[in-house]
Amino acid sequence: MTQLALVIDLNVCVGCHACVTSCKQWNTSGSAGAMSDDNPYAADPTGNFFNRVQTFEVGQFPNTETVHFPKSCLHCEDAPCVPVCPTGASHKREEDGIVLVDYDKCIGCGYCSWACPYGARELDEHEKVMKKCTLCVDRIYDESIPEAERKPACVISCPTNARLFGDVHDPNSEVSIAIREEGGYALMPEWGTQPANHYLPRRKTKKHYHEDELVRVDNPLKKEGPLVADEEGPFLEDSTSW
């Protein structure tokens, strides 16, 4: 069984919002219709987004660290938003595990958004239906675009390559290897939703030096010690290293 998902590397994300804008651009231009955007250049701008980048400050001054945190639908393997839907509009695809809303069946009751602990669903205030990340389902299977571009818009646009896309059920996929080897984790594991999307933690690059690495073992001239003036006077070899 296939479960497509994103793996987001928090160690690499710089919080540039390129994934947010490219997501909105792709999904507002698609056949599913525009995503609402009210007062975009005025006071109280609001609108529909499938993907948002949030920023958190970890620690207290001066030991702080800024974590940019892209947040979209996690396409949970046990998605709590799907069984509660009264119309069947909210569904999880058998073939690739993408959680989708059928905009033609949705009655806009909002119950699925209550049932999502991550706040991944947003009601479109104009179309009055629930909308959410589709993993660019209208793009990843489109054979009219080059194969290298058959990825979600957010993945292609990320300038730091912080977003990986693939099948998390295939143990040899890029995403599975990243989760396994880089310490990938799921959000709010306490609810048993088994999110398909994973996050890679912040990693500090550290180098540990052993003492013997600081002292040259093969040091025939004992040059590591302080230089002692030769009684016969300094030679060029004593003050210059070749």
């Binding site: 109280d44 609108g47 980048v53 958190f56 400050e57 207290q60 974590v67 945190f69 947040k71």
Partner: peptide, 24 residues
């Protein structure tokens, strides 16, 4: 801590990804 997966006693949100409000 569980929401963003960072284990620290002091975490503060600085931005939620939108200047105005949203459905959320």
């Amino acid at each position: 801590k569980t929401a963003i997966g960072v284990r620290h006693t002091h975490i503060q949100q600085k931005a939620q990804g939108a200047m105005g409000g949203s459905f959320n």
